[in-house]
């Protein structure tokens, strides 16, 4: 299945922060999880990866985080191949998982403090943590409460706050809106837009076609380990992304679509 790449015009002035170059992962049991996937996310861009379960979205993120090593190709963060120098690459990465799980016996502030320091930021004050938590929409009365009583949405907000505090140029979001109520999801999109405005390069895997179209500068569709389509926001204007997605997922479109 050939990949369709149309209409993606990105200003060269913006540096490529996340690059997948023929990224391939074949597991020991022979399963091909990712097959020569290539894309670039520049500073100030949001790249939304759509795809069903097992399409290769999380594998792509795992390769950027060097949780697994590529069989072929490479994943680079600001030019650093993650499997060659993972510690240097991870300094430039922030990550929010699908289901943010923090230390349940720590308060939100304590979790933020630990992960900020783990990410190399040891100069934040309590006020900084408070400000970020308010920015992500966590009410002040929850700041000093232990995480074990938090809802998924509240934990997700803490996870995003941790990513913001790290102040990394690239952010990986693994299905960040999954399980969030519509209001929280809406607030999250607003936050994402503000991060983009700050110049962050954001790679987001999601099932949420509506949000992807709304926020992404580039939308990619993955199927069976391949990136079968990537189109720019402008390109998708007037298009029914949901229809496109269903068609690609069903394998109807083996050839590049007419745009």
């Amino acid at each position: 299945m050939a990949m369709e790449t149309t209409g993606i015009v990105t200003p060269e002035s913006r540096p490529a922060m996340l690059e997948a170059d023929k990224l391939t992962k074949r597991y020991e049991d022979g399963h091909l999880a990712l097959d020569h996937v290539s894309f670039t996310v520049r500073a100030g861009e949001v790249f939304a990866m759509l795809g069903g379960n097992g399409a290769g979205k999380t594998t792509t993120i795992n390769l950027f985080l060097n949780f697994i090593e590529p069989t072929e190709g490479e994943a680079c963060v600001d030019g650093i191949a993650t499997h060659r120098d993972p510690l240097a690459a991870k300094k430039k990465l922030a990550y929010v998982s699908e289901n943010v799980m923090l230390y349940p016996n720590f308060t939100a502030m304590q979790n933020l403090d630990f992960f900020a320091r783990l990410g190399g930021k040891s100069n934040y004050s309590k006020d900084d943590y408070r400000r970020v938590l308010l920015r992500v929409g966590l009410q002040e009365e929850a700041h000093n409460r232990r995480l074990k009583g938090f809802s998924k949405g509240m934990r997700q907000k803490c996870g995003i706050a941790i990513a913001i505090l790290k102040d990394a140029p690239a952010i990986l979001l693994d299905e960040p809106t999954s399980g969030l109520d519509p209001k929280a999801a809406y607030e999250f999109i607003g936050l994402l837009e503000s991060l983009r405005a700050e110049g962050k390069a954001i790679l987001m895997s999601t099932h949420d076609i509506f949000r992807a179209k709304e926020v992404a500068d580039i939308v990619g569709i993955m199927n069976r380990g391949q990136l079968v389509m990537q189109r720019s926001k402008q390109d998708l204007e007037g298009e029914d992304l949901e229809k496109l997605y269903v068609e690609y997922m069903a394998g109807y479109m083996d050839e590049p679509a007419e745009v």
């Binding site: 985080l65 949780f67 993972p86 510690l87 240097a88 991870k90 300094k91 990465l93 922030a94 990550y95 998982s97 289901n99 943010v100 799980m101 923090l102 230390y103 349940p104 992960f115 783990l118 990410g119 190399g120 996870g159 941790i162 790290k166 990986l172």
Partner: peptide, 14 residues
């Protein structure tokens, strides 16, 4: 299991 290991190692942690 809690997911904190994944988050910890998304940082530059030896």
């Amino acid at each position: 299991e809690r997911g904190t290991l994944r988050l910890s190692f998304s940082n530059s942690v030896p």
